[in-house]
């Protein structure tokens, strides 16, 4: 045991990181790699199961070409994660995962992009690599159906990637969903990608909303649907309130979503480089005064009772921004 000398003690230290920090480290690895770290030591075997992210990398996408193959690997990753009792698992398909409460799925550099910009793929063009690769049935829900028991979902992908949109077009029901985090993939080309750097967190009424969003060529008329928004919170993170954000606000306001259920937060500084962490960490961000003012001006479009908006502004100033720092509760 005692060979090595002093050098070893130093080198050993990284291996001595506490579990949660180790998980943080592993969360930066492609999941398949993280799984492989189980072989490192006795302490490692369980680590990857608690890692808060599932990372499917470009290399993975190359190896597991097409969404259904990719699906298989995501299935495996999800199936073996900590919250799932292993003996409950019979089949490595993402068909039903009743024990999954909390899922974070980020598709990074997926090949499932349609060169003809069909929102949900299936363009029928044989030269389109992304759509050609679809080898599952037209009415198959690749990823999301299996996650339908989740109470919290984070689904992140670049805007071109259509898997999530495609899945949502199948209209899976999320009966227990309380929080849903999405990024700009949920905004489709024929609406001018109006919510680009935005995150929304929806409540129970979510799935029917997105049914319209993903239909190719659908006109964006959510007013036709009657939604019950009483248990519904909308949260948007964005650089600034531009037309796309206004459009979103307009849509939700037209449903009668009360103001206090809308939260708007600025994007964190490191958005570009640390996408995953900033989206999921829930850290505190300072508001700037101009930001708030812009925001309220934008909002006044949507609320006829301007005096309410004005009085909110007063509260914000009085509280020196502190109260909205964490929750942005208007």
């Amino acid at each position: 045991m005692a060979d090595g000398g002093g050098k070893k003690a130093v080198a050993d230290r990284l291996s001595g990181l506490p579990d949660h920090l180790l998980q943080h480290v592993l969360s930066f690895l492609p999941s398949i790699r993280a799984v492989r770290t189980c072989v490192l030591s006795r302490r490692y075997p369980e680590q990857w199961k608690s890692v808060p992210a599932i990372r499917i990398t470009r290399a993975d996408a190359m190896r597991y070409l097409g969404p259904s193959a990719l699906n298989r690997i995501v299935n495996c990753l999800l199936l073996f994660r900590n919250k799932l009792p292993l003996d409950e698992i019979k089949t490595p398909f993402l068909e039903s995962m009743p024990f999954l409460m909390d899922a974070f799925v980020r598709l990074q550099q997926s090949d499932d992009c349609c060169q003809n910009c069909y929102e949900a793929g299936d363009c029928g063009d044989q030269s389109c690599k992304g759509c050609r690769g679809i080898n599952y049935g037209k009415n198959t829900c690749v990823l999301l159906e299996a996650l339908s028991s989740a109470t919290k979902l984070e689904l992140l992908a670049s805007p071109e990637v259509f898997i999530f949109r495609r899945d949502l077009a199948q209209c899976p029901m999320f009966f227990k969903l309380k929080t849903l985090l999405l990024n700009e993939w949920c905004l489709t080309a024929n609406h001018g990608a109006f919510l680009s750097p935005a995150l929304t967190s929806f409540g129970e009424a979510y799935s029917s909303i997105h049914y319209n969003l993903v239909e190719m060529g659908a006109s964006y008329n959510l007013k036709k649907q009657s939604l019950i928004l009483k248990n519904f919170t909308l949260e948007i993170k964005c650089d600034q309130v531009d037309d796309r954000i206004r459009r979103v606000l307009e849509i939700f306001c037209s449903y009668g979503l009360p103001m206090e259920k809308i939260k708007i937060k600025p994007l964190p500084m490191s958005f570009d480089t640390q996408f995953h962490d900033t989206w999921s960490s829930g850290s505190r961000f300072q508001f700037r005064a101009e930001y708030i003012v812009t925001l309220l001006e934008a909002w006044s479009h949507y609320f006829e009772q301007l005096d309410i908006v004005m009085s909110m502004m007063a509260v914000l100033y009085l509280d020196n921004w502190e109260c909205i720092d964490q929750e942005c509760q208007f």
Partner: peptide, 20 residues
């Protein structure tokens, strides 16, 4: 740290992180 162990074989990772 993740970058340090990315793309390495388990044995290489062990050495990198200083596992016996």
């Amino acid at each position: 740290v993740a970058d340090m162990i990315k793309g390495k074989s388990p044995m290489e990772i062990r050495r990198t992180l200083g596992f016996p």
